[in-house]
C-alpha cells in the first residue's frame, strides 16, 4: 500500500492499519456523519433508493467474497437471497419469532443451502460451477413457488422489523437499520480479506491446485466461502423481506442474479470498495432509467407498441456489463485507485 509522503510504519500494528493518517480519519468520520444524518436532507423517495442500495450492497459483498476473493463463480445469487428472504418471512410471520432471530436464521439457512449447492465446487470449477449455481437458482425458485409454507405464487406477507419495542416502520428508521448492518458487513469484508481465511481464498482463486499443495484445505475453504457468501445473501434477503413487506418469487429472478454478477464486475472483482461502487452505479442507473427515461420514451414515442421502453433498462445493463469487461475489466475500483494515486502525487506525475 502506498502511503503519503512522510508517513512511515514503526511497528506491525501500524503496518496493518486500515485508517492511517489524520486525513483518513477526518474523511471517514465526515463520511459517516453525512451518512447517518442523511434522513435529514433526503425525502422518502431517495431514502427508499438508499435502502435498496444498502440491501443490495450486503448481498453484493457476499458475492464478492465468493467470486472476487475465492474465485467460485456463482450465478444464482438471487436464489440464495430468496432463501434468506423466505426464511425470515416464515420465521417472523408463520412462527412469530422476533426479528433478530429471523435475521440470523435467514443468514444461517441461506448459508447452509449455499454449502449444499457449493459441494460440486470441490470437484469442478469455472463453467461447471456456473451451471450448478444456475441450476440452484431455478430449483430454489421452483421450491418457493410450490411449497405451501412459502405462500407459493400468492406470496407471503412480512411484518415490520422490530427489536424489543422498537418497530422499524418509516423509511428513515429502516434506513438506520439497513445502513448499520451494511456498514458492519463492509467492515467485516474489508477485514476478512486480511486474515488467514482471506489469504486462503485468494490463493484458491489464483490457482486452487497450487493452494492445495501449499496446505490450504480446499474442501473447507471453498465451502466456507460459499457459506459466508450465502450468509450475506441471506441477511440481505431478510432485510429485503422486512423492507418490502411482501414477498413473491418474481423478485428473485435469474436476471437479478446476472445483475449481481454485473455489479461486482463493474465495481471491480476482489476489492473491498468495488461492490460499493458497482451497487451504487447499477441501482442509481436503474432508478434513473425506470423513473425518468422509460416514462419519457413511452410518452414521446406513442406509435410503438405499449411497454417497449421497459426493454431499455436490460439493454443498457447488458451493454454496460459487456463494455466494462472489454474496456475496464478491473472495474471502477481500479479507476478509484488511479484517482487516489494521482491525487497523492499531484502535481507530479509519479
Amino acid at each position: 500500500m502506498s502511503l503519503p509522503c512522510g508517513t512511515r510504519n514503526y511497528n506491525y500494528a501500524e503496518d496493518m492499519g486500515i485508517v492511517r493518517t489524520k486525513t483518513h480519519w477526518v474523511l471517514l468520520i465526515a463520511f459517516l456523519v453525512i451518512l447517518f444524518t442523511a434522513p435529514l436532507y433526503f425525502g422518502n423517495y431517495w431514502l427508499g433508493v438508499f435502502n435498496l442500495i444498502g440491501i443490495t450492497l450486503i448481498a453484493a459483498i457476499g458475492l464478492n467474497i465468493l467470486v472476487g476473493y475465492c474465485g467460485q463463480l456463482s450465478i444464482g445469487h438471487a436464489g440464495f437471497i430468496a432463501v434468506g428472504a423466505y426464511t425470515a418471512a416464515i420465521l417472523t410471520n408463520r412462527l412469530e419469532m422476533p426479528f433478530l432471530v429471523g435475521l440470523i436464521g435467514a443468514g444461517v439457512v441461506s448459508g447452509l443451502i449455499g454449502i449444499i449447492f457449493g459441494l460440486p465446487s470441490v470437484r469442478v470449477k469455472g463453467f461447471y460451477l456456473a451451471i450448478t449455481t444456475i441450476a440452484a437458482q431455478f430449483i430454489i425458485i421452483w421450491v418457493i413457488n410450490h411449497w405451501s409454507l412459502t405462500g407459493g405464487f400468492v406470496g407471503i406477507k412480512v411484518p415490520y422489523a422490530s427489536i424489543g419495542g422498537l418497530v422499524f416502520r418509516s423509511e428513515s428508521s429502516q434506513f438506520y437499520l439497513i445502513i448499520i448492518i451494511a456498514a458492519l458487513c463492509v467492515f467485516f469484508a474489508k477485514n476478512l480479506a486480511r486474515t488467514k481465511v482471506g489469504r486462503a481464498f485468494i490463493a484458491i482463486r489464483d490457482n486452487d491446485l497450487a493452494a492445495e499443495v501449499m496446505g490450504v484445505n480446499l474442501l473447507y475453504y471453498k465451502l466456507l466461502a460459499f457459506f459466508i457468501g450465502c450468509f450475506f445473501a441471506g441477511i440481505a434477503g431478510a432485510l429485503l423481506a422486512h423492507w418490502i413487506g411482501f414477498l413473491n418469487a418474481e423478485q428473485f429472478s435469474f436476471t437479478e442474479s446476472i445483475l449481481y454478477v454485473g455489479m461486482i464486475i463493474i465495481g471491480g472483482l476482489g476489492t473491498s470498495i468495488g461492490p460499493i461502487f458497482g451497487v451504487i452505479f447499477i441501482r442509481i442507473l436503474q432508478q434513473l432509467l425506470t423513473m425518468e427515461l422509460v416514462p419519457f420514451l413511452e410518452s414521446t414515442f406513442t406509435n410503438f407498441p405499449a411497454g417497449f421502453a421497459t426493454g431499455v433498462t436490460p439493454m443498457l445493463f447488458g451493454l454496460v456489463i459487456v463494455l466494462f469487461l472489454i474496456l475496464e475489466p478491473r472495474g471502477l475500483a481500479h479507476r478509484w485507485a488511479l484517482f487516489k494515486s494521482a491525487y497523492r502525487l499531484w502535481p507530479f506525475s509519479y
Binding site: V261, F308, V312, F317, G318, I321, L325
Partner: peptide
C-alpha cells in the same frame, strides 16, 4: 476478450444475454 480468464468470458455472455433480452422487450413487448 481472447485469452481472458473464464470468469470474464462467462460474464460477457451473460451481459450479451441481458442485452438481447432488452432488445426483445424493446421490439416485441
Amino acid at each position: 476478450l481472447i485469452a481472458q480468464p473464464i470468469l470474464s468470458l462467462i460474464a460477457v455472455t451473460l451481459g450479451i444475454g441481458y442485452f438481447i433480452e432488452g432488445v426483445i422487450t424493446f421490439i416485441w413487448p
